[in-house]
Computed example of a mutant assay.
Amino acid sequence: MASYIVEERGCPNTLEYKLYYKNGKGQYISPFHDIPIYADPNKNVFNMVVEVPRWTNAKMEIATKEPLNPIKQDVKKGKLRYVANVFPHKGYIWNYGAIPQTWEEPAHKDEHTGCGGDNDPIDICDIGSKVCSRGEVIQVKVLGTLALIDEGETDWKVIAINIEDPEAANYNNIEDVRKFKPGYLESTVDWFRRYKVPDGKPENQFAFNGEFKDRVFAINVIKSTHDYWRNLVTKKTDGGGIDCTNTTLKDSPFTCSQAAAEAIVKAAPACGAANQIPTEVDKWFYGQKQ
């Protein structure tokens, strides 16, 4: 199994904080472009880049518009973004992240949702019992997907389980989650519906009336986003502001040398002591369920 190392730059809980990636050979890579989509293509086991560990609030994400796409915290109006605790949930209720080498293309109108993609790698929720570390790369079994419509964009939320979870063998499709973790899927819909309400935004909508689609459907969606990504990094599609800098892709015009990659990382501030997380991040938001 491939191993990956993260290198912190900047002080945690500041605008400068970033996580850069190295592969097992110690080479700098992009988690978006250089980590393979598959851990095992024969078994449909996918790699997942963990951006947000379960129970935490900092909205960390792959920086798609920066060279080497480090993980950094989302910023709104100049301030670091934290997801509110919408009662009864505490932060994110799964390990949350992205599948590498996927891209939800804005110009492609999805046949099921009628909306274009959200311009990011496809999102994925790991329901395993282990609380992962930020930046960890885990291998997951896909179980199904939810089609969130976020401000007019298709934003797939893939449901999966870490293959190293002690109970992973029990989970092979979305109905197994309903069987072995009763209430979890309903809570997942509730979380995605209401997580932006504390910011003054309306509740999110869903395709398929908020019903989860099964494993086969989810895998087909992932494969299509991999095709859009492939067109992106080979310059068959204009990605706008997406940065496709990578260090390992043989057929990409955006591939750079290790020296150039190292210069990108070293230009970022050195890692230092963490800032305090604002106390209001621990507040609860008691919104009305619709």
Rank of each mutant, 00 (worst) to 15 (best):
K213A: 11
K22C: 03
N204Q: 14
K179P: 07
I264N: 11
P36D: 12
W103K: 10
A267N: 15
G183Q: 00
D150A: 04
E203G: 13
V131R: 11
N209Y: 04
G24C: 10
I174E: 13
Y17N: 12
A274F: 01
V83G: 02
G287W: 00
A207M: 13
E7L: 05
K18Q: 13
E111V: 02
V86M: 08
P202H: 07
K22T: 08
P106K: 06
P253K: 05
F46S: 11
K77C: 06
I242L: 14
P269Q: 08
I222E: 12
A218Y: 02
V216P: 01
P100E: 10
I124Y: 04
D214E: 14
R194H: 11
I138T: 09
N119S: 14
Y21M: 10
V158W: 03
A98M: 07
R81H: 07
V216F: 05
P166K: 13
D34H: 00
Y38M: 13
A268Y: 06
V265N: 08
D199V: 04
G272E: 07
D123F: 00
H226A: 15
N85A: 05
W103M: 10
C115G: 01
C11P: 00
G128A: 09
Q288H: 04
P121H: 00
V142H: 07
N47V: 02
P182M: 07
A168E: 11
D176R: 00
R81Q: 11
P278V: 01
E104W: 01
R193Y: 04
V189G: 03
V233M: 04
I37P: 06
Y195M: 14
K235C: 05
A267L: 04
D243Q: 10
W229N: 11
V177I: 09
N42I: 01
G24S: 15
A2W: 03
E203W: 00
F46G: 12
D282L: 05
D251I: 06
